[in-house]
Lab assay of single mutants.
Amino acid sequence: RKESAFKSMLKQAAPPIELDAVWEDIRERFVKEPAFEDITLESERKRIFKDFMHVLEHEC
């Protein structure tokens, strides 16, 4: 699924995404990734990013 691929892309980011990361600041790192391009709505990208950050916070 496209959403899973997007989350995997975020999870495998190098360097890892920090807990205090803001979408607008890290977005540039992913613009050339196929998983990024597959999610065409920016609002959807932000939503998935927020979900990812929520999970990340609870893993720590």
Rank of each mutant, 00 (worst) to 15 (best):
R1T: 15
R1W: 14
K2S: 08
K2V: 04
K2G: 07
K2T: 06
K2D: 05
E3Q: 05
E3T: 05
S4L: 15
S4V: 15
S4D: 08
S4C: 15
A5Q: 15
A5Y: 12
A5I: 12
F6A: 01
F6M: 04
F6D: 00
F6T: 00
K7G: 04
K7M: 09
K7I: 10
K7F: 15
K7Y: 07
K7W: 09
S8R: 13
S8V: 14
M9C: 02
M9Q: 02
M9L: 06
M9H: 00
M9E: 01
M9K: 01
M9P: 00
M9S: 00
L10P: 01
K11Y: 11
K11C: 11
K11L: 09
K11I: 07
K11M: 11
K11T: 11
K11D: 11
A13N: 00
A13I: 06
A13H: 04
A14T: 12
A14N: 13
P15V: 05
P16H: 05
I17N: 01
E18G: 14
E18V: 12
L19P: 11
L19W: 10
D20E: 10
D20M: 10
A21V: 10
A21R: 04
A21Q: 08
A21E: 09
A21C: 06
V22C: 14
V22Y: 05
V22F: 04
W23H: 03
W23P: 01
W23C: 02
E24I: 04
E24P: 04
E24H: 03
E24K: 08
E24V: 05
D25T: 11
D25A: 09
D25N: 11
D25Y: 04
D25P: 02
D25L: 07
I26N: 06
R27K: 05
R27G: 03
R27L: 02
E28T: 10
E28I: 12
E28R: 10
R29W: 03
R29A: 05
R29V: 04
R29Y: 06
F30A: 01
F30R: 02
F30W: 04
F30H: 02
V31N: 10
V31K: 13
V31S: 09
V31D: 06
K32A: 10
K32N: 06
E33P: 02
E33V: 06
E33Y: 13
P34S: 11
P34G: 08
P34T: 10
P34K: 12
P34M: 06
P34W: 03
P34N: 13
A35I: 09
A35F: 02
A35R: 08
F36S: 02
F36H: 02
F36Y: 08
E37N: 06
E37P: 03
E37T: 13
E37M: 13
D38N: 13
D38W: 07
D38E: 15
D38L: 14
I39N: 00
I39E: 02
I39W: 01
I39K: 05
I39H: 01
T40P: 14
L41T: 12
L41P: 11
L41A: 12
S43Q: 07
S43M: 15
E44F: 03
E44C: 06
E44T: 13
R45E: 01
K46G: 05
K46D: 04
K46N: 08
R47P: 00
R47G: 07
R47Y: 04
R47V: 06
I48C: 15
F49G: 02
F49T: 00
F49R: 01
F49S: 01
F49Q: 00
K50H: 13
K50L: 13
K50R: 12
K50Q: 08
K50G: 12
D51A: 10
D51L: 06
D51M: 05
M53I: 06
H54N: 11
H54D: 10
H54S: 12
H54Y: 07
V55D: 13
V55N: 06
L56C: 09
L56G: 11
E57A: 13
E57G: 11
E57P: 08
H58C: 14
H58G: 13
H58D: 14
E59R: 09
E59T: 11
E59Q: 14
C60A: 05
C60S: 12
